[in-house]
Amino acid sequence: MIEIDQLQKSYGAVRAVDGIDLRVARGELFAFLGPNGAGKTTTIRILTGLTRIGGGRAAIGGHDITLEPQAAKRQCGLVPQHVNLDSELTVRQNLDIHGRLFGMAPARRRTRTAELLDYVEMADRIDQPVKQLSGGLKRRLMIARALMHEPMLLFLDEPTVGLDPAIRRRIWALIKRVQQDGATIFLTTHYIEEAEFLAGRVAFLDQGRIVALDRPQDLMARLGAWAIDRINGEAMETRYFATREEATSYSASQDCGFTLRRVNLEDAFLSLTGKKVS
């Protein structure tokens, strides 16, 4: 669904995207995980036509984004990081304008609006101005809008940033459902649990480069299954163990406080880059 070869983008001397190679298969839920400034959003912006490509090549659904930009855009739905709805217009009007931008026929726009508002459980809000919606509802509406023209591929750029944990989980359930209904999903996040819960494969992005790419469980398994955090002087030290028994026997030999927990993607990212994701 997505083919990227040596993708590059620089802003002055800063290499925001530095030679990314990537393939994302149809139906996959793929996540870019990395700290702010790693190049996640820039990559999505290039793929969706918001930012000019600096070098390399990218294609969506077989359409080169430079040579056939409109055909590539028809394949994509985009949920950007920030809310970019027309706040003065109603929910229905926002969806209708999006449908018109993608050349949908009037009857299809009407039926699709009703379907999608049922899907995101907002049917009762159809004629409400967007400015009256909560942050979570706006995010759900943005997902509905991105799905309006029935794209094969959905880009979600930090889809739950700024939302409280309960609403975040509701959005996760919606994203999972969209994937189960056949869409390919490309997600960026700096929330560890979001990538762990949602993604079939995760790429760690740091300073514009992919430093690791695998299934979340395989990335974590490289370190082990259990981790012990302990304070060593002024620094936090983490040790990894294959089994809980190994971890507990090590902790029994320590004379200071410690925390036993499961290995997570943050550990995997930290071990590869020497820095935390968030």
């Binding site: 969706t48 036509g49 918001l50 409109q70 055909a71 855009k73 994509c76 985009l78 999006h98 931008l101």
Partner: peptide, 8 residues
């Protein structure tokens, strides 16, 4: 951005 991402 909504217009830029659309095929127009």
């Amino acid at each position: 951005e909504e217009f830029q991402a659309a095929p127009i």
